[in-house]
Amino acid sequence: MELLALFISAILINNFVLYYFLGICPFLGVSKKLDSALSMGLAVTFVMTITAVMSWMINTWILIPYNIGYLQTVSFILVIASLVQLVEMFIRKMSPPLYQALGIYLPLITTNCAIMGLALLAARKDYGFFEAVVFGIGSGIGFTLAIVLMAGIREQLDLADVPEPLKGAGIALIVAGIMALAFTGFSGMIKL
């Protein structure tokens, strides 16, 4: 039951994009077309889940027992960078269609602060193994939800008459603000 609450809160209430402001760069950069937004969301969800597992193992089995918590930042970023590389090679070998679909979005994920943020937040909240995994999957789905909704709105916005200086990022940010406002409606639904 608690895991379910954590899962839903990671998707809706503490949404990575709209609540923690993580992953804003791809959120603004890759949200112009619906299908590329979906691919990006799937790639992020995939990597987030694996990152949650890996960072939990490193934190619990290496950093904490040897009392080297100050290496957290360095070790997490290195793990994420190599993980993305490995995942990319693995998918290319195992599933060329999936590799085609994710395309350039996979390498871009290394610099996505949502992944690093996930590892850090999970470590800070002292999640157990299953909690960390659920948190990873939920956060990934939350990111996908936000970016896909955003892409849907932006496809419509192309047809709207937006004032010249607000075109592009400006109006996208304001739309994101209104979306964040709508998502605050979910807060209080679950008490953690």
């Binding site: 609540y19 996208a172 304001i174 603000g177 209104i178 605050t184």
Partner: peptide, 10 residues
Amino acid sequence: LPAGAFIAFG
């Protein structure tokens, strides 16, 4: 709130 950050920055 987070919403204000997006709107103000936009």
